[in-house]
C-alpha cells in the first residue's frame, strides 16, 4: 500500500513562493493498494490535480471512493473541480458523517448551487452516491477494510484506519486534542468549562482513537498548530505535533506524518518543524515525516522507503 499527498494545507489554499515546496493546496490524499485499488481521503483543493491524474489513467467508466473526514470547505472545495465527475458513466461514492440536520447530498449539493458554482450536482454527468459513515462501524470498500474513528472537531469529524496489503494506514484529521475542549454543534469563541460528562466523552474519544491506531504502520495526523499557536487558539479544533506524537507513542505507531499545515507556515518554517519533530520522534522510536504536496510514502515496514 502507498499513500500520495495531493493537498497538505489546512483552512484555505495558499499559493505563492513561500509555500511552493511543501505545497499550498488543501487536504486530499490518495491511498493505493499493490493491485491498484484506489481510495481518496478528503476532497480539498488537492483533489483537482488528483482528478487530472486519474483521468489520464483512463479506464472509463470507473468507480471512485471518496472518504470525507468532515465537510468544512477546505475538505470539500475540490469536488466541483474533480475531472472524473464530468465523465459520463463514472460513479463516485462519497462517504461522510451525517453531521447535522441536513442530508449529506444537500450539503454537497449545496456547494454546487448556482450562487457558488456554475454546474449543479444534479447536472454533473458522473453518478454520485452518498454513504453515511458511523464511527466504529467498519466498511469493506474494494480491497480496503476501513474503520471510521470519532474525532474532536466542530460539528464532528471522523478519521479512518485503512487496512490492506497486510498493512495499515490511518488518517486523523481534523481533530483537537482531548484534554481541554470538547467540540459540539455550536460556535466556540474560546474555551468553555467542561462538565463531568464532557470529560468522560473526551476520555472515551481519546481511548477510542488510541485503540483504533494500535499497531498502525503510518498515521497521518492533523498538526496544524505549533505549541505556541495552539495556546492562542485551543478552540479551533486542531492539534500540535506534540499531541500527535503522544497519541502515536501510546498506540505503538511506526510512522507519524505531520499534515494539515497552517496556511501561515512558510516552507522555511516547515523545514524547522520537520527537523525538530524528526528528532523528537526518533527519541521515542517513531519516525516523523512532514508531508509535502506530491509526496508518496510506502506503507508497511517491509517496504523500502
Amino acid at each position: 500500500m502507498k499513500i500520495t499527498f495531493w493537498g497538505v494545507r489546512g483552512s484555505y489554499p495558499v499559493p505563492g513562493a513561500a509555500t511552493v515546496r511543501y505545497g499550498g493546496q488543501t487536504s486530499c490524499v490518495e491511498i493505493r493498494t499493490e493491485s491498484g485499488g484506489c481510495l481518496i481521503v478528503d476532497a480539498g483543493t488537492g483533489l483537482r490535480a488528483l482528478g487530472q491524474k486519474l483521468s489520464r489513467e483512463g479506464g472509463v467508466p470507473r468507480q471512485f471512493h471518496v472518504l470525507l473526514s468532515h465537510v468544512h470547505w477546505d475538505h470539500i472545495q475540490g469536488l466541483p473541480f474533480f475531472e472524473p465527475a464530468y465523465i459520463p458513466g463514472n460513479r463516485i461514492a462519497v462517504y461522510a458523517l451525517l453531521t447535522a440536520a441536513d442530508e449529506l447530498d444537500q450539503v454537497i449539493g449545496g456547494i454546487t448551487r448556482h450562487e457558488f458554482f456554475p454546474m449543479p450536482l444534479e447536472r454533473v454527468p458522473a453518478q454520485f452516491q452518498f454513504i453515511e459513515v458511523k464511527p466504529t462501524v467498519a466498511m469493506d470498500i474494494e480491497d480496503f477494510h476501513v474503520l471510521p474513528i470519532a474525532l474532536n472537531h466542530p460539528y464532528g469529524a471522523v478519521g479512518y484506519r485503512v487496512d490492506a496489503d497486510g498493512t495499515s494506514v490511518a488518517y486523523v484529521a481534523d481533530t483537537a486534542p482531548f484534554h481541554e475542549v470538547l467540540h459540539k454543534q455550536h460556535f466556540l469563541c474560546g474555551l468553555e468549562p467542561l462538565s463531568h460528562e464532557d470529560l468522560a466523552a473526551l476520555a472515551a474519544m481519546r481511548a477510542g482513537l488510541v485503540a483504533a491506531l494500535r499497531g498502525v504502520d503510518t498515521v497521518v495526523y492533523d498538526t496544524h498548530f505549533l505549541p505556541e499557536e495552539y495556546k492562542r487558539f485551543p478552540h479551533y479544533g486542531h492539534s500540535t505535533p506534540d499531541q500527535a506524537l503522544e497519541i502515536c507513542a501510546e498506540a505503538g505507531v511506526r510512522t507519524l506524518v505531520l499534515y494539515h499545515h497552517a496556511p501561515s507556515h512558510s516552507d522555511d518554517q516547515m523545514d524547522e518543524v520537520a527537523e525538530r519533530y524528526r528528532q523528537l520522534g526518533k527519541a521515542q522510536g517513531i519516525e516523523v515525516v512532514t508531508s509535502q504536496e506530491g509526496m508518496t510514502l510506502m506503507v508497511g515496514a517491509q517496504e523500502p522507503r
Binding site: V107, H114, F187, C189
Partner: peptide, 29 residues
Amino acid sequence: DPPGLSLQATLQNQLAPHYSPLNGLENLA
C-alpha cells in the same frame, strides 16, 4: 442578490456550521 436568493442568506450559508466553524456571520467579531 444572486438570482432568486438574498446576498445575506448566501453568505450566511457559506458560513453554515457544516462548512465553517464560524457558524454564521453573527460570529464575526
